[in-house]
Amino acid sequence: MSSKPDLTWMYTQMVRIREFEERVKRTFTDHPGVIRGHTHLADGVEASIVGSVSTLREGDQVLATYRCHGYPLAMGTSADAMMAEIYGKATGLCKGIGGSMHLTDPANGFLGTSGIVGQGIPHAAGAAWAAQIRGNQDVVLSFFGDGASKQGSFHETLNVASLWKLPIVFVMENNGYNVVTQSFQEDANAAAGQDLSIKATGYAMPGVTIDGGDPVAVHEAVGAAVQRARDGEGPTLVESKVYRLSAHGNLIAPPGVPLHYPEHEAIEVFGDTEQYAAALRGDPVPRMRGRVVSEGVLTSDEAERIAQEARDEMQAAVQFGLDSPYPELDEALAYVHAS
C-alpha cells in the first residue's frame, strides 16, 4: 500500500531485477544464440519500477513497453517462467511466442506490452476505462519512455484520459535517450530546459518530475497520483528521471554475428565517459543498499543475504530456461485466434 513503503521489500525487488537483468545480459556471452532478436534491460531503472508498483493493490493493472522485465518480477511473476520466455522455451510465461519484448502475466496484474513505441499507452487507457466501469477504484499504471512522448498516441491518450477522468497514472521513465538520440536533440521541452512533465499542462492534468533513482520518492509521487486516480479525479503524468545503465538493446546484427551488449550510447556514440561515470555513481541499487543499512532497516549481513538469494534465484532461472524444451511446432498456430 502507498502509505508506508516497505524498504526491505523494495530493496529485495530491486536486487532481484538487477540480478535477473545481469543474467539476461550475460546469456549473450555465456550461451550465445540462446537469446534471439532484440532485448532491452531495466538495469538502472529498478528504483522507479519498484517504487511505482509498490503503490498497487489487488485489482490494479500495469501495461508497459518492450523494456518489460522489471515490472512482472516485482509483481509476483516467476523468474523461471520469464527467463524461459526470453529463451523461447515451452515453459515460458507466454509459451515462447512473445519473447523478451512481450512478457504478459494477467494473473498478476501485468496485462501486457507493445513493442511499438508509444502504442501501449492507449491500451492502458482502455484498461483504465474498464476499471472505471467496474467501479472498484482500481487503477492502471502506464509505463513508457521519454521517446514515446513524441508519438501521437501519447498526446491523443492523455487528452481523452484527462477528459474522461480515467483512473490511470502515466509513468514516463525518462532515461535521457531515444535509442541513440539524446532528449535535447528531439524534444522541444528538453531543448528549452524544461521538465518533460510540463507536457501534462497541455492536457489539464498534474505533471510532476521526480528522481527515479529513489524508490521512496517514486513511491510517494506515484502513490499520490494513484490515490488521485482512485478518488476519481483523473490521471497524472509522472516523469521519473532514470538512467538505464546498459545500451538501448543488444547488438542488432544478422545471424552469424553473435549478439552482445555494446557500451552505453553515452560512451559508444557520444564519447561522454563522464556522463556514464556519473550515472554509475548514482546507481540506484547500491544507493538503496546503503540506505537500508545506514537507516538500520537491515544489517549489512542481511542485505548481503538478500542479494545472495536473488543471485541464486536468478541463476536457477537461467538453468531452468536452458534445461527447458522448445515448444512443439503446432504451438505456432495455437493462439492466433480465440474463437
Partner: peptide, 28 residues
Amino acid sequence: ADRVRVTPISETAEIGMAVGAAMAGLRP
C-alpha cells in the same frame, strides 16, 4: 454514458483503448 461515449478525433487512442479495454474484459 459508461458504455456509450463520444470521443475526440483520435483514432489511435480510440482503437488503442479498444485493445486495452478488450484485454481487460470488455467488448468494444
